[in-house]
């Protein structure tokens, strides 16, 4: 899907020509104004408060690269974690699974679940894969993902998640299960672990059945 802030595929060859024209022209790619790609923007404008405004490259547990905004069109439960976390992160996965378990099969197929690591230095694709297998996460709905270190805090800031490396390979971080609607807007959140949060489950069900607009 063409994104409003990046060149659309239809001008790819043009872009390559320009880039080849000289190293000094790097501003052309890094400084691309929003209007330059407006011709080929998605049919409906992305809401101004959508997290999909962030151009975030991700890689999933199977090594597939994707952009955050490829998730547009389908509601999503999202959280952040790291695989070597012993205590809270397993509970986070359980809380997401418990929330999913409250959904009807139809609601479940309309929702995806994604967890992004705070710790790309240690959480390789293989480490994500290992956790996904150990926790028996359904690859149809679940994604464990990593991004470059320089992007992690942007996603955390968008989601209102705080984290800090504390030196021994651990992170202090706030716990949040966040519901993102089909257009990327934050539609609900909970910090409740251990048992499902009924108010949050209600929001998730409503989002799963909402038309994708």
């Amino acid at each position: 899907m063409p994104s409003p802030l990046e060149p659309s595929p239809s001008i790819g060859p043009r872009r390559r020509t320009l880039l080849a024209a000289g190293a000094g022209l790097y501003l052309v790619s890094s400084g691309l104004p929003a209007w330059a790609a407006a011709d080929t923007a998605a049919p409906a404008a992305l809401p101004s408060d959508s997290i999909y405004q962030l151009k975030l490259p991700l890689v999933d547990q199977d090594g597939h690269s994707f952009a955050l905004d490829e998730r547009r069109g389908r509601p999503m439960l999202v959280s952040m974690f790291y695989t070597s976390c012993q205590f809270v992160c397993p509970m986070l996965i359980e809380a997401l699974q418990a929330t999913e378990a409250k959904l009807s099969p139809e609601e479940r197929t309309r929702l995806s679940v994604m967890m992004v690591t705070f710790d790309p230095a240690h959480d390789s694709v293989a480490a994500l894969k290992k956790t996904a297998d150990q926790r028996q996460l359904d690859p149809q709905h679940w994604t464990l993902a990593r991004t470059e270190a320089r992007h992690v805090r942007k996603l955390a800031a968008l989601l209102g998640i705080q984290y800090r490396a504390i030196g021994n390979g651990d992170f202090n971080h706030t716990t949040a299960l966040i519901l993102i609607d089909a257009q990327g807007r934050i539609a609900g959140r909970t910090a409740q672990l251990g048992s499902t949060d009924p108010a949050f489950v209600k929001l998730v069900k409503a989002a799963a059945l909402a038309p994708a607009s």
Binding site: S10, I11, R14, R15, V28, L32, P33, A36, D39, T40
Partner: peptide, 16 residues
């Protein structure tokens, strides 16, 4: 319209 190459080219000239 999608892929209006002339317009795209004009826009690119402006960007450049």
């Amino acid at each position: 319209p999608h892929g209006d190459s002339r317009r795209v080219r004009r826009v690119w000239h402006r960007v450049l």
